[in-house]
């Protein structure tokens, strides 16, 4: 029986790390070691060509990836146009195109 109280409670957004599968993250980190250098500054996202048209957000993808939340990644990654602007602005010299390509291999399911 459900009672309408006139308000609802949002589902919790807390992530239980114990239930997360980090194997894919480790796979990515092993394939492109420079991934670990990221400081979440968001320069890549600010300059991104795709971001100028849609809500594509590399920084968010990275954060989701670090938290083991892989569900939406496949759909998001397809929006990247691989133009490579992000690699040129990254202050930490991450190999961003290799990261995106590896992510596509790992997360984009056919």
């Amino acid at each position: 029986m459900s009672v309408n109280f006139g308000y609802s409670i949002a589902p919790t957004r807390a992530i239980n790390y114990d239930n997360c599968d980090f194997s894919k993250l480790h796979e990515l980190e092993q394939a492109v070691p420079s991934f670990k250098r990221c400081i979440n500054c968001g320069a890549c996202t600010a300059t991104c060509s795709a971001q100028q048209f849609t809500s594509f957000n590399i920084r968010k993808i990275k954060t989701l990836c670090m938290d083991g939340q892989y569900e939406s990644l496949g759909k998001e990654l397809k929006k990247c146009m691989l133009c490579g602007k992000c690699t040129l602005v990254c202050p930490r010299g991450l190999a961003l195109r290799p990261i995106i390509m590896t992510m596509r291999k790992i997360f984009v399911t056919k």
Binding site: S49, Q52, F53, K78, M81, L82, C83, G84, M101
Partner: peptide, 23 residues
Amino acid sequence: EDRTMCCGRPLLQQGFNRQAADL
């Protein structure tokens, strides 16, 4: 001037032919 669509060549070079054709 405001925003750029990629020409598709970077995708093409990585073998993403259909995506490049979209662009």
